[in-house]
């Protein structure tokens, strides 16, 4: 069987088209999977942020209860903390990321005031081992939050840059990959 010149050319064109389609399909699949992985990294980093905030929401009322013999907390301070915690819990239940960010930022401001007040005004701070232990846990939690937020923002940066770049933006638009928000806070400690 002999191929004419025209047939041979047609076969070559078909093969090139098939290889191109196959290559495009493989690229599409790999890009899609990478975006899924990047999205999962954001989810796991966010879970660490929420775990640590949950811990801080538990620790601050403990600090207030432990020091209320000597510290005259303003009326409504504990209620405010409780309200922020409720707001956080509702946002967490509704998977409302912006709601959680707002609640946690407000809580950071309130808890900073409480912690500074204890550090500056509590008379037995240096000799009260239970209180010092609690302060260690709070400081450790805040540091862990700083790192968790930094890791979250780094994961968001990688993902957001990827879904906006050409030609990956085609995959992002077809696969419901939306831009994720950064966790920004004016009062957050500087990320390492």
């Amino acid at each position: 069987m002999e191929f004419t010149k025209g047939k041979l050319l047609a076969i070559i064109v078909v093969v090139i088209i098939l290889i191109s389609v196959l290559g495009f399909g493989i690229w599409w699949m790999l890009t899609y999977n990478k975006m899924v992985d990047e999205n999962e990294a954001i989810t796991s980093n966010w879970a660490e942020v929420t775990n640590q905030y949950q811990r801080k929401f538990d620790l601050i009322p403990q600090l207030m209860n432990l020091t209320d013999t000597y510290m005259s907390w303003e009326a409504g301070t504990l209620e405010n903390i409780t309200a922020m915690r409720t707001e956080w819990a509702e946002a967490l239940a509704n998977d409302d990321m912006n709601g959680m960010m707002n609640a946690s930022n407000q809580f950071d401001v309130a808890s900073d005031i409480i912690i500074n007040a204890v550090q500056e005004n509590y008379p037995n701070l240096d000799s009260d081992t239970i209180l010092l232990g609690l302060m260690d846990n709070i400081a450790g939690t805040e540091n862990t939050i700083t790192v968790a937020r930094m890791n979250y923002n780094e994961a968001v940066q990688v993902y957001n840059a990827h879904i906006k770049k050409f030609p990956a933006v085609w995959v992002a638009n077809s696969g419901d990959f939306e831009e994720m928000p950064y966790y920004e806070s004016p009062n957050a400690p500087a990320a390492p």
Partner: peptide
Amino acid sequence: LPDSRVGTLAR
């Protein structure tokens, strides 16, 4: 080694 335990030992 939670923070409180390490802190107590350090002090």
